[in-house]
Design a protein around this nucleic acid. Structure first.
Length: 330
DNA sequence: GAGTGTTTACGCTCGT
DNA sequence: ACGAGCGTAAACACTC
């Protein structure tokens, strides 16, 4: 099956990629925001490398309004911005339907870090990703399964049960307090080392049994939950959780790169401000640079001009992609 | 029934 | 070559 998948992929690559482009390697496809074909007939994305895109070109914020919720889009209804036009070497197309150069772990982390409470539900993660990256409005079953897998599989994500006064489906997900530097090497495609926590054994006891529910007083100590009224954090909220739980905010205040302002191009940020917080709960106020590369030896973006660094990062990424292609390295 | 969460398996790329 | 990290598929259990 997988063999068929890759065979089909290869075949499609052979037939779809225009002669003026070089087929991307698997890694380019998967991790570098390029083409990822799956099944025959699936929406075809053809990266044009005539001009490096900005991060905003991966996002949809310039097309979103507060009333426009992202739509479920199938491959037939993808508003393709004209393949012919898109393939024109003189007219670079938008990258909104190219796979963003972030791993799922990165995307989840973005979602959590851009939440005011640093806790999000699974559906909020889905929504965040689809809002931000039109690419993920396609083939939702596939990537959403991967998201769920990533959440369960990676120690850096911690499940927080809903409080009794907030009934609903699913739990909240937050970042492990020690996971903030997962990407500090500057590469958001692939971490150099997977986050592994000893504390997870304690923190995640609630994963396996309702008897271990966070609201079970017996577990409150194990989980190091805050129970102090002085802290203003509600009972059941992990002590490391940040704002709005007052004294806990500091632990999540590391200089994270996934603030929305860091992943959109400057020219799109103004559009972003239209967003109704109720429907578009991102917080551009949390803003630090998003270094996006590292394995190529280029320095990650540093603090300073954040907009510049964010766009620069992706531009650099694409310039590298162009270089790889033009030199036949891909 | 749909959504959510866990787990296993497999294949790929990358770094050592 | 090998292990790690990642993406994907799938099966299954659980919850709402």
């Amino acid at each position: 099956m997988l063999e068929n998948y890759y065979t089909a992929t290869t075949k499609m690559m052979d037939t779809v990629i225009p002669s003026n482009t070089t087929p991307l390697s698997h890694d380019m496809m998967v991790h570098h925001g390029g083409v990822r074909h799956t099944t025959p007939g699936e929406y075809d994305i053809k990266p044009i490398v005539t001009a490096p895109p900005t991060i905003g070109e991966y996002t949809s914020v310039n097309h979103m309004t507060s009333n426009q919720q992202p739509q479920q889009t199938n491959i037939d209804s993808v508003p393709d911005d004209s393949p012919k036009q898109a393939n024109s070497p003189m007219k670079p197309r938008s990258y909104q339907h190219a796979k963003p150069p972030y791993s799922y772990i990165s995307l989840i982390t973005m979602s959590i870090q851009n939440s005011p409470t640093k806790m999000v539900t699974l559906s909020e993660i889905y929504q965040f990703i689809m809002d931000l990256f039109p690419y993920y409005r396609q083939n939702q079953q596939r990537w959403q399964n991967s998201i769920r897998h990533s959440l369960s599989f990676n120690d850096c994500f911690i499940k927080v049960p809903r409080s009794p006064d907030k009934p609903g489906k699913g739990s909240f997900w937050t970042l492990h307090p020690d996971a903030g530097n997962m990407f500090e090497n500057g590469c958001y495609l692939r971490r150099q080392k997977r986050f592994k926590s000893d504390r997870k054994a304690n923190l995640n006891v609630l994963h396996h049994s309702r008897a271990n529910d966070m609201y079970n007083p017996n577990n409150m100590q194990k989980l190091q939950m805050n129970s102090s009224p002085r802290g203003a954090a509600p009972v059941g909220v992990p002590a490391f959780l940040p704002s709005p739980y007052g004294p806990y905010r500091g632990l999540h205040s590391f200089n994270h790169p996934f603030a929305i302002k860091n992943i959109i191009a400057p020219e799109h940020e103004a559009d972003f401000r239209y967003a109704d917080p109720m429907h578009f709960p991102y917080h551009p106020s949390t803003f630090t640079p998003p270094p996006m590369y590292g394995k190529d030896g280029l320095p990650p973006a540093t603090s300073g001009d954040n907009f510049m660094s964010s766009s620069l990062a992706l531009n650099q990424y694409y310039q590298n992609s162009c270089l790889m292609q033009s030199t036949g390295m891909a």
